[in-house]
Design a protein around this nucleic acid. Sequence first.
DNA 1: CGCTGATGTAAGAGTTGTTAACATGAGCTG
DNA 2: CAGCTCATGTTAACAACTCTTACATCAGCG
Lengths: 208, 208
Amino acid sequence: MSWKDRERGYHHGNLRQALIEAARALIGEKGPAGFTFAEAARAAGVSAAAPYRHFRDRDALMADVAAQGFERFEAALAKAWNEGKPEPMIAFHHLGRAYLHFARTEHAYYSAMFESGLSPDATPELRAASDRAFGVLRGAAETLCAQLPAGKRPPVLMVSLHIWAISHGVASLFGRGDSGRRKLPMDADELLESAVLVYLNGLGLGRA
Amino acid sequence: MSWKDRERGYHHGNLRQALIEAARALIGEKGPAGFTFAEAARAAGVSAAAPYRHFRDRDALMADVAAQGFERFEAALAKAWNEGKPEPMIAFHHLGRAYLHFARTEHAYYSAMFESGLSPDATPELRAASDRAFGVLRGAAETLCAQLPAGKRPPVLMVSLHIWAISHGVASLFGRGDSGRRKLPMDADELLESAVLVYLNGLGLGRA
DNA sequence: CGCTGATGTAAGAGTTGTTAACATGAGCTG
DNA sequence: CAGCTCATGTTAACAACTCTTACATCAGCG
C-alpha cells in the first residue's frame, strides 16, 4: 500500500494496480472464478467502464494478477533458499516451507497462478515470471544434485519437476488450513517435509 | 448414452442424469467455472427452470458431477490395481498410470473433483465417494508397506497421502497433453513413474 | 377420470459486457 | 500563466444472460 497517497480526485492515480489488487482480493474470497470485470471495478471504487482503459478483458487482468503472484512467489522462494546457505539441506527445507507458506497465506495469488485455468503463455510477462520462479527450484535442485557422486547423478530438470509436483500436490490437496480437504493426523508442512525427505533419501541424499 | 430410449414427450424421463452429463461436457469445454445452471439446462434440451426440480443450485449439480467422477475414478483405480496382482510393484505401476490416464481422458470429471473449489463435504455422497476412491490408494500403500521389515515400516496413511500428492501434482501441473503448462523433454507418465520410483526407493523398496 | 409429480412457458428483477459520447485534470509548450 | 492535448474516468444506454418464482400442462397410475 505504498502507492497513491492522494487517491481522491477525478483521476484515480493508479487504477491499474488498484484493479489488480481488487481482483486478487475477490479471488481470495470467492475462488479463481469468483470475480468479474464489473465487480473488480466496483471493488476499486470505479465505474464499470474504467477497466477497459487498462485491460482488454477479464483474462488480461487475471494474467496480470498471476504474473505479480509469480514475482512475489519467486522473491519468497529465493529468500528462503538464500543461495543454499547456511547448508544446502537446511536451505532446501526452508524452501519447502516457504512454498507451502506462500500457497497458504497468499492463497489468492496461488489460485490465480495455478487454478485459474489460465494458459501460462497468456502473456509474455506471465511466462517470464513463471519461469523465473521455477528457476529458483531448479537452482536448488542443481545444488543438491551436485552433492551426489557424478556417476549416480540424476537429471536436474527431472528432480526439480519432481519437487515442484510434490510441493504443488501437497499444497493443493492439503494446503488450505481450515477449509482443508479432509481432517488428517498430520498437517501439510509435515506431509511435505516427510515426502521430500523420503524422496531425497531415494536419490541417495541421506538426512543431514 | 445408455439412458433414455424414449426421451421424446413432455417428460424427459431422466433429466437429472442428463443434466449431470451436460454439466460434465460443459466443464470439459470451458473449465470448471464455465458452466451455468441455465446453460446446462439448454444443453440438456430443457427449459431454464427445469433444473430446479432436481438441484437446489449450481453447486449441488457440481457436487453430483464430482461424486460420479469419484465413483468412476475409484473403479478405474481399483481395476488397475487389481488387488495387487500379479505382483504389488507392477500393480502399483499400473495404478499410477491409471491415475494419470483418468486425469487426462476424464479431465472434466477431474476438474469437478479437484479444481472446482467445491468443499469435499458439500454432500455426504461426495464425501463418501471421495473416501472410497482414496481407499484404493490407501490399500495399495498398505500392501507395499507390508513388504518392508516391521522395524522400518512407515505409517500407511502417510505413504498413501504422499503418493496421492505426487500423482495429483504431476497430473495437475503436467497432465494436460497439448494445453500443457510448458514444453518439457519428458511427459507426465515418465515424470510420475520416475518420481514414484525414487520415492519408493527412499522407503527401502528397491526396484523389481 | 382425477390426482400427483415432472416439465414447460412466461415474466420480473438484477448483472454483465461493451460501446459511445462526454468530462476532468495533469503536463507540456509557448 | 493561458491553452492545447491526451490519458483517464464518468454517464448513459443496450443487448444478452442468469436466476427465480408463479402458473399452466402433460403423463402415468390408481
